[in-house]
Amino acid sequence: MTMDKVFARFANATAHITGTPGAFLVCVALVVTWAVTGPFFGFSETWQLVINTGTTIVTFLMVFLIQNTQNRDTAAIQTKLDELIRSSAAEDQFIGIEKLTDQELARLHSHCERLAQQSHQALERAASERLRRRS
């Protein structure tokens, strides 16, 4: 098995496990245990360093795992959307737009908003026309 597959499986499993209520409760229990032990250690710098170091290391590693999982999820969603666009009557210009710059995306978004507003106005006119004809 390739390193990519091993890491993907590990990242998925870790993201799944750490996103559960049980994992959250374990973390709360660890923090409460750490806080309760404070008086026994005189709230020393070493006692504080334990929680600071532990949370920093966990946070640092989780950033990479979560980012990996999100990157794969985003790529899968984009691929699915591209296939839906390609196989429908939608405009092919939308395939691959995730690679555009922020400015290009903003222009395309404004264009789509204008088209949506025009469609909405046309629907309102048609509904008004139907009501007028019934009267």
Rank of each mutant, 00 (worst) to 15 (best):
S119N: 11
K5S: 03
R86A: 08
I95D: 00
F60G: 05
A35V: 14
A11Q: 00
G22R: 02
T79A: 04
R9Y: 05
V28R: 02
P21N: 09
N52T: 09
K80C: 04
N12L: 12
S88K: 09
Q48W: 11
Q67H: 12
T2F: 07
L49Y: 04
F60R: 12
A13T: 15
Q121M: 08
A15C: 14
T53S: 13
T20Q: 13
G96R: 07
F64T: 11
T101M: 13
R9C: 04
H111L: 12
R86F: 13
I17L: 11
T2S: 11
M62D: 14
A35T: 09
P21D: 06
T55D: 00
D73C: 12
R72G: 01
E104I: 11
T53L: 15
A29K: 03
E104Y: 09
I77C: 04
S119K: 12
H109K: 08
V26K: 07
E104L: 05
E83S: 10
T79E: 10
I97K: 01
F10E: 11
R125E: 08
T69H: 05
L49R: 08
D73I: 15
R134K: 12
H120S: 11
H111F: 05
G54K: 01
T101N: 07
E129Y: 13
F7D: 02
G22S: 14
A126I: 06
L123D: 04
R133G: 01
Q118F: 03
I85R: 00
G96C: 03
K99F: 09
S135A: 05
A127T: 10
